[in-house]
Each structure stands twice: as structure tokens, then as C-alpha cells.
């Protein structure tokens, strides 16, 4: 046997093979995806699968940063280079700015980052404070979660809350309790990485419930379909949270395919893969769906003025099936 090619062939015959017909004419908004960690192939595939806009939350880069300057450069790159890179594939790029929970545990660094945040949260296309919340659920994590909730309230920005992998249910409850303590309106708070155990309380308390379709460690999308069947589409949204781990930047369109296939109606699919994310994060005043609903090319001619070269989706394509590289 060589290289597993047989497996790939077998997969194409599976009943659950990717079928673009299922999502014909749909477009998607992935409200949580870490493009900094992804390749241009991913951008191309996302555009091909109908993703027209995305939100890149600030997060942990897999290894702790040790200088405040690397945070400043990271935020700048989300607002500059990554946004430009995304536009080349016709995908509108937004971001949320924040100090993630893991790095909140380095107090000296966290203090310096907090001082930096106010200069970044009013930048164009910053649609919230995020992703913030608990990881280990330490006292320092709580301290900087609270300080950032205050910042969000002052700036009238939505909050994107990361909920912990370990001790998830309690961590999620605590995140919501603290947000309410700081007088945040639950309609301004998106609780992320939900599962069957957390969703009911999140919705009952008036928060947005985001679900991350992420293989092995978070939600699978068959479970997601069942959750949609049970809870409907109100205040629910789906994201990929694709990053440097084994994850899938096509999680949103693939889940739409699965929902369609399993008989979920078109309006519900649109709500959880597009509309609700725009409604929640659009409260920042930074999202105009006209910028991407009909493709980004039109918009770019306005936004980037005298720039005739930049057009969404005009990156030259590589002929992937050919061994010739020109």
C-alpha cells in the first residue's frame, strides 16, 4: 500500500462526500477563525465555498508571548496585513481585539497589554473585544476578564467570550455571571464554544450562543444539526475556530451542507451561518453587509480608491491538478 491514496479515493464514494450543489447560492459568515495560522489555499477554498466575510479574534499563538511589543505587532498585523491578504480572495475581514485568558496569567505582561488595548479597539473593522474569558479559571484570568468587560462597556462593543475546555459548564456559568455583574447587556455578549450541556442556560439568560465545529475536541456537526433541531436558530451561530491545530476552515459551509441534507430549512441555515453573526457583531457599528453581500470587488473600488489592481478574488490560481508549475 502506498501513501493512503486508496483511502482518498474511497472517501469520494462516501455518501457524505462534500457536495457543492447543497450550498449553491448560499453565502457564509464565519465569526471565529484564526487566519493568521492558515494558508492561502485555505482562503481560496473558503471563498470557493461561499464564505464572504469572517471575524478573526485575537488569541494565543500556540506559545506564550513574553513582550508587549509582540502584542502590538500582532494586533497591527490583524488590522493590516491579514486584512489585506483576506481581501485578495474577496473575503471581508473583521477582528476582535483582546487579551486572551492564557496570557492573562502573566501579570506584568497583562498590565502592559491592557494599557495598549484602548489604542486598538477603535480601529476600523474591530467588531468587539475578544476572545476573552477563562482557561484555567485562575484569579488573574478573572481580573483581566473583568477589566476587559469594563472596556467593552465603555466602548459600546460586543464581547466574544471563550469558554474553557476543562470544567466547561461551571466556567461558562461563571463567565455569564461576571458579565452580568458588570452590567453588560447579554445581547452584547457572544458566549463561544458551546455544547449540549451549556446551550440551554446561555440562551435562557439572553446571551448569544456560538458553536465551534472543530474535529475531536469541540463540536462535531452531526451533533450541531441535532442542537438546531432542538433549539431552533434564534441567537445561535456556527463558527470554525480554525487555527494552528487540526481544524477545518470549511466547517461552516460543510455544516450548512449537512443541515440542508438533513432537512433543515433554508431560513434556519442562513440564520445560523450568516445573519445571526452579523446581527450580534454588527452592534459594533462596524459591519455593513453591503460590503460583502454581493462580493467584495464592488466595494473595493470604493474603499481603496485609486487602486485598480486590488480586486477581490482576482488572485491568480494555481492549477492544483497539474504537476507543471508556471
Amino acid at each position: 500500500m502506498c501513501c493512503g491514496n486508496n483511502d482518498i479515493e474511497k472517501r469520494a464514494e462516501l455518501p457524505d462526500a462534500v457536495d457543492m450543489e447543497l450550498i449553491k447560492d448560499m453565502c457564509f459568515f464565519d465569526p471565529h477563525v484564526h487566519m493568521t495560522s492558515r494558508t492561502t489555499d485555505d482562503y481560496q477554498a473558503m471563498a470557493d465555498n461561499g464564505i464572504v466575510a469572517l471575524i478573526e479574534p485575537s488569541f494565543w499563538l500556540g506559545q506564550p508571548r513574553t513582550h508587549v511589543g509582540t502584542f502590538a505587532d500582532y494586533y497591527s498585523s490583524l488590522l493590516g496585513w491579514e486584512r489585506f491578504r483576506s481581501s485578495q480572495f474577496g473575503i471581508k475581514h473583521y477582528c476582535t481585539i483582546g487579551l486572551n485568558s492564557r496570557e492573562a496569567n502573566n501579570e506584568a505582561l497583562a498590565e502592559a497589554v491592557m494599557a495598549l488595548l484602548p489604542t486598538f479597539i477603535y480601529k476600523e473593522g474591530v467588531v468587539g473585544i475578544g476572545e476573552i474569558g477563562f482557561d484555567d479559571q485562575t484569579a488573574l484570568e478573572e481580573k483581566y476578564y473583568r477589566l476587559q468587560l469594563e472596556l467593552a462597556r465603555e466602548a459600546a462593543l460586543p464581547v466574544q467570550v471563550h469558554t474553557p475546555h476543562r470544567d466547561k459548564k461551571k466556567g461558562t456559568q461563571r463567565s455569564m455571571d461576571i458579565a452580568l455583574e458588570h452590567q453588560l447587556d447579554p445581547s452584547m455578549v457572544i458566549i463561544d464554544h458551546n455544547n449540549e450541556e451549556t446551550v440551554e442556560e446561555v440562551l435562557n439568560r439572553g446571551f448569544w450562543a456560538a458553536f465551534t465545529i472543530y474535529p475531536f475536541t469541540k463540536m462535531g456537526n452531526e451533533r450541531m444539526v441535532e442542537i438546531i433541531r432542538q433549539y431552533g436558530s434564534e441567537r445561535i451561530m456556527i463558527n470554525s475556530a480554525a487555527d494552528w491545530g487540526i481544524s477545518d476552515p470549511l466547517a461552516v459551509p460543510k455544516t450548512a451542507m449537512l443541515m440542508k441534507k438533513r432537512g433543515i430549512d433554508a431560513a434556519t441555515i442562513k440564520a445560523v451561518t450568516y445573519d445571526n453573526a452579523i446581527a450580534a457583531f454588527g452592534q459594533s457599528g462596524q459591519i455593513d453587509p453591503n460590503d460583502f453581500a454581493n462580493g467584495m470587488a464592488i466595494n473595493q473600488s470604493e474603499k481603496f480608491e485609486n487602486n485598480s489592481i486590488l480586486r477581490g478574488g482576482q488572485q491568480p490560481r494555481i492549477a492544483k491538478g497539474s504537476i507543471i508549475i508556471q
Binding site: 494586533y75 497591527s76 493590516g80 480601529k123 481603496f304
Partner: peptide, 10 residues
């Protein structure tokens, strides 16, 4: 310059 977003940088 150091903290600019795309529009600001331009």
C-alpha cells in the same frame, strides 16, 4: 505608523 490599520497606514 506603528499602530495603524490598513486605511490609516495608507
Amino acid at each position: 505608523f506603528l499602530q495603524a490599520d490598513l486605511g490609516e497606514l495608507t
